[in-house]
């Protein structure tokens, strides 16, 4: 849903970032308004996963220049946990397993950290149990997964459902979903996409990072951005994704080779 007067939730300006000595992002510009769904597409190595990690504050990435405003305030100055508490969510491509930490306890602590920031009352184990049972339905997840260690021994699809469950509990304003479709079979994809669609609303914004069109059949984006060599090369509507599906990414290489792309220096 595009409304040009909707408030800006996330504004990325000329963002440069590197990992170790390797520059990955080379000037990303992107604005997310409330109610919008954006998709960032691109090949492996184009920088799209890096973008998601930089936004969430992964310590391995260093921002070298540019800025990110979250609801008008500097996001990059915040620790990762603080970013989460104010409503930024990253759904991981490969959610890690955390042995020994109960999934239920983890979800409760995370939810309460967010609620505390929102000035809401912390939920005790009983109140939280009610909430989590309700949110489990969004992803049609077996409650047995709550009793296990975080992601431990979960299949790829179960891990992704657990991600969306977390999103359902944390109720973020900006959700970044990194390759949420990878490793999912058709049924799991439908469930996960259904969950994302349920959670998207007029006050929130979603940034989908994906390789493939198939996720965008299930979650229809308002904007599609093509990323290459650490920048957004083209932006269009959902048709752009279809075009990519048809033509592949070769034209991107061709375009990159053109000098007109190259206001770039150095």
């Amino acid at each position: 849903m595009i409304r040009s007067d909707a408030p800006i939730l996330l504004e990325i300006r000329d963002l440069h970032a590197r990992v170790e000595d390797q520059p990955i992002l080379r000037g990303v510009n992107l604005t997310l308004r409330a109610g919008e769904i954006h998709a960032v597409m691109g090949r492996n190595g184009s920088g799209k996963s890096t973008l998601s990690k930089v936004l969430a504050g992964h310590p391995a990435y260093t921002v070298t220049s540019g800025s990110v405003l979250y609801r008008g305030a500097d996001l990059l100055a915040l620790e990762p946990e603080q970013r989460a508490r104010i409503g930024l969510f990253l759904g991981f491509q490969y959610p890690v397993e955390i042995p020994g930490v109960s999934n239920l306890e983890f979800l409760r602590v995370a939810t309460n950290a967010r609620r505390q920031e929102q000035g809401l009352e912390e939920l005790d184990t009983f109140a939280f149990d009610d909430l989590v049972q309700e949110r489990l339905r969004v992803v049609q997840m077996d409650p047995a997964f709550l009793e296990r260690s975080v992601n431990q021994g979960f299949s790829g699809g179960e891990k992704k459902r657990n991600e969306i469950l977390q999103m359902a509990l944390l109720e973020p304003l900006v959700a970044i979903l990194d390759e949420t479709d990878s490793g999912l079979d058709i049924d799991a994809l439908r469930i996960v996409a259904g969950g994302v669609n349920q959670l998207a609303g007029p006050d929130t914004s979603t940034l989908l990072i994906t390789h493939y069109q198939r996720l965008l059949d299930a979650i229809v984006p308002d904007f599609v951005h093509v990323m290459a060599a650490g920048r957004i090369l083209r932006t269009g509507g959902k048709d752009l994704a279809l075009e990519l599906e048809e033509r592949g990414y070769d034209w991107v290489d061709a375009e990159l080779a053109q000098p007109l792309a190259g206001a770039e220096v150095g």
Partner: peptide, 27 residues
């Protein structure tokens, strides 16, 4: 305890120290 596990917990609003102690207590 890997940096990625800690980042995962942090990215859910759990502070760094709390994340470490959560993992160690669980263990």
């Amino acid at each position: 305890i890997s940096a990625d596990q800690l980042f995962y917990l942090q990215s859910r609003g759990i502070g760094f120290e709390a994340a470490v102690s959560m993992m160690v207590s669980g263990f």
